[in-house]
């Protein structure tokens, strides 16, 4: 009995230590990246290259998801608001939902699924095939060369993609609301313009910056600490996507609470 309890406590203690060790390592990693991001030499060409990979190549999928999200919001919004005789507010409901909440969250989740997983897999493969060692042997700092451009590109890309998502989503909602459901075009637009305030846009922007930073941090860290072989890359990629997605949703709640308190 005593031995059983001892083993149980010992195992629990190991888990707690491992957890804090992992969290500490992730923080040390990002502090190292941030220090190297603000000190020379700067590699702008690599940042532009990653902006293309993470940002430009994600435009199509983000726009596609955006247009259908807006369309669904129009149908659901019109159905719900009709029960209160308030279909005139469909435009404002769509715009506020997208700008404050769905735009940043869904964009970050889509970019995480498309570019985050690819980042982790690429970095993991580079690590297990000694490409990271090759960089070091050529006197190139892999943190500066691989991590800094990806994290900065993630930070810039997600807010820009969120803006595209919002615009396309509102357009999708407008088309379905006005053309299919017969809402008044003028009412749709005027209600939307009246309802959306600067603070809503700032709130969405802050969220998208935080989400962009979070997903690229997790993706880079998981690739950097990837285990050996195909199994290691597989685990790291799965873990990166799941961790980022959970982190984005958890952060969304806290950010919403904080930003609402600040701006209301």
């Amino acid at each position: 009995m005593f031995l059983y309890l001892y083993n149980l406590i010992s195992r629990f203690g190991t888990l707690v230590i491992d957890y804090f060790f992992a969290v500490g390592a992730a923080w040390l990693f990002i502090l190292n990246v941030l220090y190297k991001a603000v000190t020379p030499p700067y590699r702008f060409s690599l940042i532009i290259q990653q902006l293309y990979v993470i940002g430009a190549q994600s435009v199509a999928v983000v726009a596609l998801v955006g247009v259908f999200t807006g369309a669904v919001l129009a149908v659901q919004g019109e159905y719900t608001l009709a029960q209160f005789g308030a279909t005139a507010y469909t435009g404002s409901a769509i715009a506020l939902s997208l700008i404050r909440e769905l735009g940043p969250v869904l964009t970050a989740l889509m970019v995480n699924g498309r570019a985050g997983s690819a980042m982790t897999a690429e970095l993991g493969i580079m690590k297990i095939t000694e490409q990271v060692d090759a960089l070091r042997s050529m006197a190139v700092d892999p943190i500066r060369y691989l991590m800094v451009p990806r994290i900065i590109a993630g930070l810039i890309s997600v807010p820009l993609l969120t803006a595209i998502f919002n615009v396309v989503g509102i357009a999708g909602g407008y088309i379905v609301g006005v053309e299919n459901l017969g809402l008044s075009s003028g009412t749709f637009m005027s209600q939307m313009i009246q309802a959306v305030k600067d603070v809503d846009i700032i709130s969405g922007f802050v969220k998208s910056v935080v989400f962009g930073f979070t997903f690229s941090w997790v993706a880079c860290y998981k690739g950097w600490t990837c285990g050996f072989g195909a199994v290691g890359v597989n685990r790291a990629t799965t873990s990166a996507v799941v961790t980022s997605a959970v982190a984005i949703l958890v952060l969304d709640y806290f950010l919403t609470s904080i930003l609402t308190n600040i701006f209301m």
Binding site: D133, S137, A139
Partner: peptide
């Protein structure tokens, strides 16, 4: 390191 060149086991090309 700059005085050295390395050929890795699987070449480690980018």
């Amino acid at each position: 390191c700059r005085q050295m060149g390395v050929l890795f086991q699987n070449a480690a090309l980018f």
